[in-house]
Structures are given as C-alpha cells and as structure tokens.
Amino acid sequence: MRIEEHPILSFNKGKKVNFVFDGKTYEGCEGEPIAAALHAAGIMVLGHSHNKQRPRGFYCAIGNCSSCLMVVNGQPNVRVCTEKLQEGMVVETQVGKGDLK
C-alpha cells in the first residue's frame, strides 16, 4: 500500500514501471527498492530460509541482514531491500540457495 497523503513529507517517486514477480506483472516506481514495490503490492513474503524453508520478509531494509534474498533477472541472492527497480525486471522467489547461471 502506498502512502498517498502525508502531513510532512512529499514523495518524489520515479516514473511508473512494470516488473514481473513470479510470473505476474506489477507496477512500481523506477529507482525504488524492489522490496518497496513488492510491499506496495501487498507482497510481504520475499524469500524462504535455506534449511527450514521458513518464509522471510525483509528485516533491516538497508542490506544488513540477508533476509530478503531473491532472484532478479536470473541472478540469485540479490538483496531486494537495496536493489533498485527498473523497467521490465524479472523478480522471482528464490528456491534454496540459488543457482549460478
């Protein structure tokens, strides 16, 4: 959910772009973190832990904690809390530890 009105802040977001998450197309703002765009679309489960397959969201939002690793444009282990959204990006839920391709 995006915050439309704010008493103090105004958000100068980038232009609207489309991206694909697990096969479905979503809209986000260019340059915002992928995790922000996913949250705006109501998607909170970003990945799963390696051993116990527990759902994981983001925790720190600044690239510290490694909770939000996803596959972006085929590359595994991308921290989507800091990776910036671009037009046409393909974002996928990572299964296991990720495959190098």
């Binding site: 832990s49 390696h50 051993n51 116990k52 527990r54 994981r56 925790y59 904690c65 490694s66 909770s67």
Partner: peptide
C-alpha cells in the same frame, strides 16, 4: 525451535 538467534544460518 522457532526462536531465531541467527537468521542466516537458522
């Protein structure tokens, strides 16, 4: 069993 101390290595 589900109180995590280390998130990365679970």
């Amino acid at each position: 069993d589900n109180t995590f101390v280390c998130r990365c290595e679970e």
